[in-house]
Design a protein around this nucleic acid. Structure first.
Length: 764
DNA sequence: CGCTCATAAT
């Protein structure tokens, strides 16, 4: 028995499937409703019919016998494509056999095409095999059909068969094969096809060049894509649009924008496709001024009423933070698409992340959730984009309950099978402080990408579970996934966390030698952090000296924190003043310095720094925390007494602090940098309570007994609150999770997942 | 042959 034809695509052998002997009509797609309207393209003989025709009536017009004109079938077959009607196609097929026209190759080819368009791949293939005088059109119809039905590999195998049988491909055949290569991301096969295109003298055809440009981009090679674009002698709008989009897809928005500018200066008129892409590039490159100009071009060329263009303009407004403008545009749109909703949700999610954890962030997040609900009500079904974005929103809000609801919806809708959605889910559980749920979601994923592995490794690291992080990293390597620089940040920070010096050094070398990844500041920061945590200040400084570049803010702040916790205050002050020079506008650096001088009771320096802050017009810090309980959110300021439960909260805090002191809690002194003068005065004399402590108290009072308390804080947690929260977790027997602007703190049984090293670093 | 929206970090 002759073996089935096969080729190697992306390193795996593909045989032409299915096996023809196993054909069955059971797995066919559902038909759309079918009724004949009089076709405008119908030949004369139909023109008298005024009522819709049944297929039998339509076929009876064609008649039977030897004088049947084959072209009469054409409009009927076109109707079959339009209605995706397999049964009608079979009737016509039968009629063709009866009238003895099965020898007519163009009709057989047409039938192959129609079967494919109806999704009946097996039927098409079976027919193809029975056509003895098949020509290049028949071959091309088969290839195109495979690509259309999501079986590009089969299309490529057929192409090889075609070449072996000595038939010359046409322009259309090669175009179809290029689509197949694109759809299966097969760059090697694509390059071979590229060779055939040159061989058959078609490389100067604009559309061939466009297809090649698109192919290389889809396969991830921007370089080859741009080269293919460069070789097109007569570039049209589509050529330009393809290469500009290719830049965006491959992460080089700046190049894409340069090409767009080139295109405009060459007087090529952009259309809605080009402008939509260009607008999107402006969003990702944060080139907002250019974005405004592109917007003008949209108006100039009359493209501003196109829905995709409007979506991208709206997204640009959102990215610029012009919420009212975005909203106005959104409200003015008479029709919206799913992408409109998704852009709205994603835009707000991005604003939320940019604003870190403050009240603005919260507002954006809530707005995004509202949009997600409205999307539901609008009757459209959320897709993987909607789910990814809304999960990101739940992460940002630490909205575990909403996140779990979305989890359920994602399962029901089937979109959880998507890697991006399931990665976002893992991330959501992690950011909400539920490492176990994150891990469960990770294990349940059916496919994992570099990003999924990396985010789970980092999650373990953030929760202080170094061993799991390292184990997972090794599993990832065994799974054949190549780590990148971000993965190593996760691994190294896990080692640093657990003080695993030799492991850290090992992985640092693995990164450089085995994977050829050059360490950047982030990786050095992990190493320095590790030495500092162990109290090896000298090793830390030595390591810094070995770096090929000047220490940045991150390195300085690690050193400062290390010096403080190991009592080397002179060095800490020195480093802090250097840090201040490096970035004089960072509010939290001043606060750090201020608190250090307060703790050292160096009052002259305290007033010097306060004066500096005044001179530099550094605003006071807005200390804000909030808690989600059920569907409501409760905000707290430092020393907040405006709350309806204030009395009970302060009572609880006093009691807890008193009992904590008996267990060994020693309060740290903080400089008061509250922005609420009245509150400050009211609180003078009594203990100063930062917002997170009030939020924790509120959470303890209002969450169900034993349930974890989840707090979000807009700046980094101070030492005193951090220390007291550890005692609270012992005294109440509850888990307390505080996500500040920098990291996650999971307090449990008197310990914090951050490894007690997080207090009062500047927020970098 | 070309379009807009989605996931990881000290």
């Amino acid at each position: 028995m002759a073996s089935l034809p096969s080729i190697v695509i992306n390193g795996t052998l593909h045989r032409l499937e299915p096996d023809l002997r196993k054909l069955s009509p059971t797995s066919l797609p559902a038909e759309k409703g079918f009724s004949y309207q009089r076709s405008t393209a119908a030949p004369e003989s139909f023109s008298e019919a005024s009522q819709p025709l049944t297929i039998q009536e339509a076929l009876s017009f064609i008649g039977e016998g030897s004088r049947v004109e084959p072209a009469l079938y054409v409009p009927l077959l076109q109707q079959c494509i339009e209605y995706r009607s397999l049964s009608e196609t079979e009737c016509i097929h039968g009629h063709i056999i009866k009238t003895g026209l099965r020898e007519e190759v163009f009709l057989s080819t047409s039938l192959v095409n129609v079967y494919m368009k109806c999704g009946a791949v097996d039927y098409a293939r079976n027919l193809f095999e029975k056509i003895p005088q098949r020509n290049i059109f028949t071959w091309t119809a088969l290839i195109t059909g495979y690509v259309h039905n999501g079986q590009p590999e089969n299309g490529m195998v057929v192409f090889v068969q075609l070449l072996e049988s000595g038939v010359y491909p046409t322009y259309y055949t090669l175009g179809a094969v290029l689509s197949a290569c694109s759809a299966s991301y097969s760059i090697e096969f694509g390059e071979q096809v590229h060779g055939y295109i040159i061989k058959f003298g078609l490389e100067s055809a604009t559309s061939m060049g466009n297809s090649l440009c698109s192919l290389y981009s889809k396969c991830g090679s921007l370089e080859l894509s741009v080269k293919a674009f460069g070789r097109i002698p007569d570039k049209n709008v589509i050529s330009w649009t393809t290469v500009i989009t290719a830049c965006g897809d491959n992460g080089d928005a700046d190049l894409g924008l340069r090409l767009f500018v080139d295109m405009i200066s060459e007087d090529t008129v952009p259309n809605e496709f080009t402008l939509t892409s260009a607008m999107s590039l402006c969003c990702s490159a944060h080139a907002f001024d250019l974005g405004k100009q592109v917007h003008s071009l949209c108006v100039k060329y009359g493209c501003d009423s196109s829905l995709p263009v409007r979506n991208s303009i709206m997204y640009l407004y959102l990215k610029r933070g012009e919420l009212d403008e975005a909203r106005r545009l959104f409200d003015s749109m008479e029709t919206v698409s799913l992408i409109t909703w998704n852009a709205m949700i994603a835009g707000h999610a991005e604003l939320m992340d940019m604003a870190k954890n403050d009240a603005t962030a919260h507002k954006s997040g809530i707005e995004a959730l509202k949009m997600f609900r409205r999307l539901h009500r609008s009757g459209l079904k959320p897709d993987l984009f909607s789910f990814s974005s809304v999960l990101r929103v739940c992460s940002g809000l630490v909205a575990l309950e909403q996140g779990e609801q979305v989890h359920g919806q994602a399962i029901k809708s089937g979109f959880l099978a998507d890697v991006v959605v399931s990665s976002a889910l893992v991330n959501m559980y992690n950011k909400c402080g539920s490492i176990d749920k994150a891990s469960k979601a990770f294990v349940e994923m059916n496919t994992r990408t570099l990003i999924s592995w990396t985010s789970m490794i980092s999650a373990y690291s953030q929760h202080g579970r170094a061993k799991e992080a390292i184990q997972l990293f090794e599993q990832m390597r065994l799974a054949g996934v190549r780590p990148n620089h971000v993965t190593f940040v996760g691994v190294l920070s896990a080692c640093a966390h657990a003080g695993m010096v030799s492991e850290a050094q090992h992985y640092f070398n693995v990164m450089r030698n085995e994977y050829g990844i050059k360490p950047v500041m982030d990786h050095y920061a992990c190493m320095v952090d590790m030495y500092v945590r162990l109290g090896c200040l000298e090793s830390a400084f030595d390591f810094v000296k070995c770096m090929a570049f000047e220490p940045n803010e991150i390195i300085w702040s690690i050193l400062i924190a290390g010096c403080r916790s190991h009592g080397n205050m002179e060095l800490a002050f020195y480093a802090s003043e250097r840090l201040l020079e490096l970035i004089p506008k960072a509010t939290e650096t001043y606060v750090l310095l201020l608190n250090m001088y307060v703790a050292a009771e160096r009052w002259q320096d305290v007033s010097r720094v306060r004066k500096l802050m005044k001179d530099e017009k550094i605003g006071v810090v807005r200390d804000r925390s909030w808690v989600n309980i059920k569907d409501r959110v409760y905000f707290f300021r430092a020393n907040d007494r405006s709350h309806f439960q204030s009395d009970r909260m302060y009572e609880l805090l006093e009691d807890l602090l008193e009992r904590a002191k008996r267990l060994g809690y020693v309060p740290y002194k903080n400089a008061d940098v509250s922005d609420d003068e009245k509150e400050e005065k009211a609180a003078s004399g009594s203990t100063l309570h930062h917002s997170e402590r009030l939020a924790i108290a509120f959470g303890l009072l209002n969450m169900p007994k034993g349930a974890p308390v989840r707090v979000v804080k807009n700046i980094t947690m101070c030492r005193d609150c951090h220390s007291s929260a550890k005692f609270f977790s012992i005294l109440t027997g509850r888990e307390i999770i505080v996500r500040d602007s920098k990291r996650l703190h999971n307090f449990k049984d008197g310990r914090c997942s951050c490894g007690d090293f997080a207090s009062e670093e500047p927020p970098f």
